[in-house]
């Protein structure tokens, strides 16, 4: 792309320096790095799991409770409802309680699309990404992590990334069955049967509303992202 910069020459130079430095400490080092390559392939294939905290290794009921507890500790608010039928009512109630207009922006997530929104006719819904003028955005999470109250959202037309960051208020919908104990379980869901990870363009792991401590190290909510995060757990 650049006339001045020869990318493959720079790559060879850097990799060459790395190999020379590493070879200086290992006797009879193989310049082709065949052994190293094999070790790397083995490690990438076996993907050993690290240490999963004990607190994350509990039953479903405890996981859901733990998720909500940790989410609230980081200043998210939470609600739990029985089914998707109750979702429109839960959203309009949240909007009323926070003096917000009955209007949301949301993506094309099939689980949200299937909801009967006519039960709350006053709720105005815009479908698509956020352009920064929306006060409230609604996204469906692909999962939750109980050990830190983290919601995990995947980019795409179903749940546009801009909705996670631009509206001042972010409502995250999460199926209780998708709450895992640990991060590893969520990352496992991204891999296919042969173990290959299929990443969305952006995977957002969100733990509470945006904040900054950059003025005299005092934490303030609502830095550049949402000032409020409300998680509605279904089931």
């Amino acid at each position: 792309m650049s006339e001045r910069h020869d990318n493959s020459a720079a790559k060879s130079a850097i990799l060459g320096k790395i190999r020379r430095s590493l070879a200086s400490v290992s006797e009879g080092a193989d310049p082709n790095r065949n052994e190293a390559r094999q070790e790397v392939q083995e490690r990438l294939a076996s993907r050993p799991k690290g240490i999963v905290p004990k607190r994350a290794q509990v039953g479903h009921y405890e996981k859901v409770a733990m998720f909500m507890d940790y989410a609230e500790r980081v200043s998210s608010t939470t609600a739990r409802i029985g089914s998707y039928d109750d979702l429109p009512g839960a959203i309009t109630q949240y909007l009323r309680e926070h003096n917000l207009p009955q209007a949301i922006v949301m993506g094309e997530d099939p689980r949200l699309k299937a909801v009967n929104w006519r039960t709350e006719p006053q709720l105005e819904r815009t479908i698509g990404p956020s352009d920064g003028t929306d006060l409230v955005g609604v996204n469906h999470a692909m999962g939750g992590v109980a050990e830190t109250g983290t919601a995990v959202l995947a980019s795409g037309p179903d749940n546009p990334t801009t909705i996670n960051f631009l509206p001042e208020n972010h409502i995250i919908v999460l199926d209780a069955n998708d709450i895992a104990g640990d991060y590893e379980s969520i990352h496992d869901q991204l891999r296919d049967m042969s173990g290959v990870a299929h990443m969305p363009r952006a995977l957002n792991m969100i733990t509470g509303p945006s904040r900054s401590g950059d003025i005299e190290q005092k934490i303030m909510l609502g830095a550049h992202g949402p000032r409020a995060v409300h998680v509605i757990v279904i089931g």
């Binding site: 980081v74 363009r201 792991m205 969100i206 733990t207 904040r211």
Partner: peptide
């Protein structure tokens, strides 16, 4: 001293054909 930072984001490649943003 947070148990987790607010945003951990994994980015993989540019906007996909079907993506509305990015």
């Amino acid at each position: 001293g947070q148990e987790q930072s607010v945003y951990t984001t994994l980015s993989t490649g540019p906007r996909r054909t079907e993506d509305p943003d990015g």
